[in-house]
């Protein structure tokens, strides 16, 4: 994984009134990899995603995507650059069919409409929901909706997919299917960043793991190394020494 970085986070901070949600976090994400961001509740994982996708403006620091600063751009402009997000709590367009949901991703997203139907079909197949294309989105199960989120996101021709807990609450079969989809997405040339709580999935799928705690980056490395990192274990168990680290 020595490819050029696709995403560079530089001294990123975010403050909500009194709360320091993110302080001076820096890291880079190499292209075409799967990186997992883990950490206890309130560690700043969702804030990080919200900052990258333009939901929230950063208080300080920069976000560089493919070498260009994107921090503070409106959400739709960031999507046009090639970043897409799949939500944990799926937000499908309920009154539309699965096909139409994904097609809207293909119509918009990066660089406008090109090969819309081919892109749509590819995204449906990649996310393994081609057989559901005609169903109304409101008729899908929770697991299927997660696949739809991924399909719609990659239909935007995004180069970077941010996936919000794609495996949370899924049963083992569904989890295995989702992991397979994420690998397929990477194989198609898309960089994936996950926020995930489900440790076995993280260990299985990730090329690299970042650990956030209380808005700081406390570990960054290969999955097996991070799993044995003392600071990480302390952060998860809440030991007092970790606070000084």
């Amino acid at each position: 994984m020595s490819a050029a970085p696709i995403l560079q986070i530089e001294h990123l901070s975010k403050q909500f009134r009194g709360l320091q949600a993110m302080s001076d976090v820096s890291f880079t994400i190499p292209a075409v990899s799967i990186t997992s961001i883990i950490g206890p509740n309130g560690a700043g994982k969702s804030t990080l995603f919200n900052l990258i996708t333009g939901y929230l403006p950063p208080t300080a620091g920069g976000i560089r995507f493919q070498g260009q600063l994107i921090g503070g751009l409106p959400t739709n402009r960031i999507a046009e650059r090639g970043i897409a997000r799949a939500f944990q709590i799926a937000r499908p367009f309920r009154d539309l069919s699965v096909f139409e949901n994904v097609r809207i991703g293909a119509l918009f997203g990066k660089a406008g409409p090109r090969d819309v139907s081919a892109t749509t079909d590819r995204a449906l197949r990649l996310a393994a929901i081609a057989h559901l294309a005609a169903r109304p989105a409101s008729a899908l199960t929770v697991g299927q909706l997660r696949h739809l989120e991924v399909a719609r996101a990659i239909a935007t021709r995004a180069d970077l997919l941010l996936a919000d807990e794609p495996c949370a609450g899924l049963n083992p079969t569904e989890t295995a299917a989702m992991i397979e989809v994420l690998r397929e997405v990477r194989a198609s040339g898309v960089t994936v960043v996950l926020v995930e709580h489900d440790m076995p999935s993280v260990m299985e799928v990730s090329d690299r793991v970042l650990v956030l705690d209380a808005g700081r980056l406390i570990a960054d490395g290969l999955p097996q190394d991070v799993a044995q990192d003392e600071k990480v274990i302390a952060a998860y168990l809440g030991s007092p020494e970790a606070d000084d680290a």
């Binding site: 739709n76 999507a79 937000r91 809207i104 918009f108 997203g109 935007t156």
Partner: peptide, 9 residues
């Protein structure tokens, strides 16, 4: 919100 996130202006 989701529309905007997909790049819809």
């Amino acid at each position: 919100d989701t529309a905007r996130m997909l790049g819809v202006p």
